[in-house]
Nucleic acid binder design. Structure first.
Length: 803
RNA sequence: GCAGGUGUGGCGGAAUUGGCAGACGCACAGGACUCAAAAUCCUGCGAAGUAACAUUCGUGUGGGUUCGACCCCCACCACCUGCACCA
């Protein structure tokens, strides 16, 4: 009988669908729960990408294993359906995003089901469903009420293509992450979320979660904590002060000039004393026209203008030093002004060299040798030419100078973060409306919670406004409302939320997706929290992961969720590349469509191949040849039924292999080493074929182990061999450690570290007996050389050193 | 520039973490089956070398530690991924 995967897969998928086989239990008395989460897809018009199933299959394997281990498993799926592509498509074709989204979700659902994932389809969520975004809006209102959402006019990244404000995270190399158009700076009034208030906790609590180390590193870098000091510099002959932030207060004696960012307020304040105001203004204007990217481009010559007419006073040396304006100082970090220490900072050094500014060395290596400047080593440095700091190590000097500054009230210890507040407004239609109303008398007022959801009005015209206004801004009948506070006429916010909003809390909704009273019930949250294992792409480590941790911590603070962290464990999969090793894209013509693969080889082969491709966390190139090998493997598995013999226990010749395999595969799955699990399966099949027999007990265990990887074929074979219940209801096989150990082993014998031969010994054979065997084997190969030393590592290796 | 990662046959990759390098798969070659092809099955497959053994070389490069190194240490090269004038 041939392996008819089409028939088999359809049969089991229909059965699972009809019976809801994999729905998580709502019985919370079962204390053993496991919550596995994959990043829910954006239902794009292109359909499922072959990259999605890599992550989904991996967690599906773990979820299926957990069920067999007796856990109540929650393994949900949903759709992150707000976003630009549907809206851009609507602009082009005038098809409402709601229709496109619905169609795409249908398509995705069919595709996902055709691969046999054990998702709980009774819990599907969709971020564009008013019943869902009602709670997204509710969270926003809570943020607002707790002072974490505020409106600010600030320069934002404005995409000239999408005509929309972008978060810093969405700007890549000066262009829009989505459409590739240039991004310029624009002043706009935007809703902001105060993620910076949580910076320290987002950093600290990384110690309590099990994330891949590289994910933690990226989060830490993104938060970018640094310790230093703020120092006040007096402006000579004035009451004004210039506040700077520095991580090297120990180098204060070497500060030979100051630099302020072009946007710094000092220039305005002291405008009447500046003798070259025109020149300074011209520089400011030029800087304003440059994008952040242009300003930040490396290896570019530093530019700047001295602000003449005013001087700053170094608080330690009392020397008057010049003040410059230069765009290498950013207004958005620290205080927007720096003290420049050219001898010990490469940027200041470049600038000082270009403009002939004095360079004073104040730190030297411990041995006081001459070094090339700038000398930036903080580990070995010792203060010199620094008054009361001279002779101290960098660390001690920092400590001492901060004490001094604090005592004299001219400065204080200060921690800074690179993390910025989250720009939360989007001038777009296809997003959650921000549930805020502006009243002339009351200012910004949140909607009453009982009036949620604030639904997105149906519009016919999706073009953004000329000035980057939201398409909703043209909808006067929707905009005009009454103030929830005083009842007077008022206007709605027309901006919508970014795509990150809905995905910042979706894992909570899965716990109780049909709840009308709350985002999820207390019981469900208590029972299912936290997510036990979350797998997703590295591209989401700095944005989505950080945002959702922030929202979660906030919800924890206001008593909504029971845990500090949303995800106990986070892993990450490597990207699937085209067969040419490049990222799959339509323009490169190297896109593989999952439907074609499922059609030609079947879902089981597709799953096995994606797991066999290579190490899970590393990128892998698609190979049509390799996938045939996986099909061949399953075909061999199918034909094992032809050599099936009776037997209720493992046969003598296979007992060891079976026990070893259970151990290896069980461990491999936990370590996400799926590729070596599959090698183990292949080795087993080769052995059964070589022996021309497999007994029932062996086959049953084999099928159970393979079931999470290839669920359809294994269920079918299980039925064929007369099982009375499906594998998904079996217990995960256990092994007997004693039966994984060989009592007779082969060990290598080396002479001077080079392999000469191998000998067979009993496990734990006594050393003298082993020695005797070794000498019998190699004594005639020594060419009369003298044995100097013999090393025997028990049961491992025997090495003879000769001369 | 900083941080992290990777480098092993023709290719994808294994290696119990310091102990027989190349498991498993692909490709390739030979054979069986077939009128023939495909599929399937069997055998071989790092390089040099030999009739065949033997032997030598071999995990990006150069050095080191060790009885023994893909694995540890030092220096370097190449590629990938983040971040990037963050004071």
């Amino acid at each position: 009988m041939a392996y008819n995967f089409k028939e088999i897969e359809k049969k089991w998928q229909d059965k699972w669908d009809k019976e809801g086989t994999f729905n998580a239990s709502n019985d919370f008395t079962n204390s053993k729960k496991w919550y596995g989460l994959i990043e829910f897809p954006y239902p794009s018009g292109q359909g499922l990408h072959v990259g999605h199933p890599r992550s989904y299959t991996a967690l599906d394997i773990i979820a299926r294993k957990r069920r067999m281990q007796g856990y109540n498993v929650l393994f949900p799926i949903g759709f992150d359906a707000f976003g630009l592509p549907a809206e851009n498509y609507a602009i082009k074709t005038n098809v409402h995003p709601k229709i496109t989204t619905e169609k795409n979700i249908k398509h995705f659902t069919d595709q996902l089901k055709s691969i046999g994932f054990s998702f709980d389809w009774s819990r599907v969520i969709n971020t564009t469903d008013p019943e869902y975004y009602k709670w997204t809006q509710w969270i926003f209102i809570q943020l607002y009420k707790h002072g974490l959402a505020y409106k600010a006019t600030m320069p934002i990244n404005f995409c000239t293509g999408c005509k929309v404000g972008l978060a810093n995270e969405e700007v890549v190399n000066g262009v829009c992450e989505r459409c590739g158009s240039p991004v310029v700076q624009k002043e706009k009034s935007e809703w902001m979320l105060k993620i910076t208030k949580y910076a320290q906790r987002l950093l600290d609590d990384l110690d309590d979660v099990d994330y891949l180390e590289k994910i933690k590193v990226q989060q830490r870098n993104w938060i970018g904590r640094s310790e230093g000091a703020e120092v006040k510099f007096k402006i000579a002959n004035s009451d004004e002060e210039l506040l700077v932030y520095t991580t090297r207060p120990d180098t204060l004696f070497g500060a030979t000039y100051m630099v302020v960012a072009p946007e710094h307020k000092l220039i305005e304040k002291l405008a009447n004393r500046i003798t070259n105001l025109d020149e300074v203004k011209e520089y400011q204007n030029k800087a304003a026209l440059k994008s952040d990217f242009e300003r930040g481009e490396m290896n570019k010559d530093k530019t700047g203008v001295e602000i003449k007419g005013i001087k700053a006073v170094n608080p330690l040396t009392n020397e008057e030093i010049p003040i410059w304006v230069a765009d290498y100082v950013l207004s958005s970090y620290g205080t927007g002004a720096i003290m420049a220490v050219p001898a010990h900072d490469t940027r200041d050094f470049d600038f000082a060299t270009k403009f002939n500014l004095p360079i004073v060395q104040v730190v030297a290596p411990t041995d006081n040798s001459n070094v090339e400047l700038p000398f930036t080593d903080v580990e070995t440095g010792v203060s010199i030419n620094s008054g009361f700091l001279t002779g101290l190590s960098v660390k001690d000097a920092k400590q001492k100078v901060i004490e001094y500054l604090e005592e004299k009230k001219i400065g204080e210890k200060k921690v800074n973060y690179k993390l910025r507040d989250w720009v939360f407004s989007r001038q777009r239609y296809w997003g959650e409306p921000i549930p805020m109303v502006y009243c002339e008398d009351c200012g910004w007022v949140p909607l009453d919670e009982k009036d949620l959801p604030l639904t997105l009005p149906d519009v016919k015209d999706f073009l953004p406004g000329e000035n980057g206004e939201s398409p909703l801004a043209r909808h006067t009948e929707w905009i005009n409302t009454t103030c929830p506070h005083c009842g007077k006429p008022a206007k709605r916010e027309t901006d919508t939320m970014p795509q990150w909003a809905g995905s910042s809390w979706y894992y909570l909704r899965y716990m109780d997706p049909h709840n009308h009273e709350a985002l999820a019930s207390k019981e469900a949250l208590e029972y299912w929290s936290p997510v036990d294992w979350y797998n997703g792409g590295m591209e989401h480590t700095t944005l989505h992961l950080l945002y959702s941790r922030f929202w979660h911590k906030f919800l924890y603070d206001i008593g909504v969720v029971p845990t500090k962290e949303p995800y106990a464990k986070r892993t990450s999969h490597g990207m699937i590349l085209g067969s040419n090793g490049e990222k799959m894209s339509k323009s490169k013509g190297n896109v593989i469509n999952p439907d074609d693969i499922v059609n030609e080889f079947g879902a089981d082969t597709f799953r096995v191949y994606e797991m066999f491709m290579g190490p899970f966390d590393q990128p892998a190139s698609w190979s049509m040849d390799s996938i045939r090998g996986c099909f061949k493997f399953l075909d061999r598995v199918w034909h094992l039924q032809d050599i099936l013999v009776d037997g209720d226990t493992y046969s003598k010749e296979c007992e060891k292999m079976m026990n070893k395999a259970i151990k290896k595969i069980s461990n491999d799955i936990e370590d996400m080493k799926f590729n070596t699990s599959i090698s183990t399966f292949m080795t087993m099949v080769n052995e059964f074929v070589r022996l021309k027999r497999i007994n029932k007990a062996e086959f049953k265990t084999f099928l159970t182990l393979l079931n999470p990887f290839a669920p359809h074929i294994t269920e079918e074979l299980n039925e064929i061999i007369g099982a009375d219940k499906p594998i998904s209801s079996y217990e995960w096989p256990v092994y007997d450690e004693a039966k994984t150990i060989d009592e007779e082993i082969e060990i290598p014998v080396q002479v001077n570290g080079k392999l000469k031969c191998t000998i067979t010994i009993a496990l734990n054979e006594d050393d003298d007996s082993v020695k005797e065997k070794v000498h019998k084997a190699i004594d005639d190969k020594l060419d009369g050389k003298v044995i100097k030393k013999e090393i025997y590592v028990k049961n491992k290796i025997y090495n003879v050193v000769v001369k």
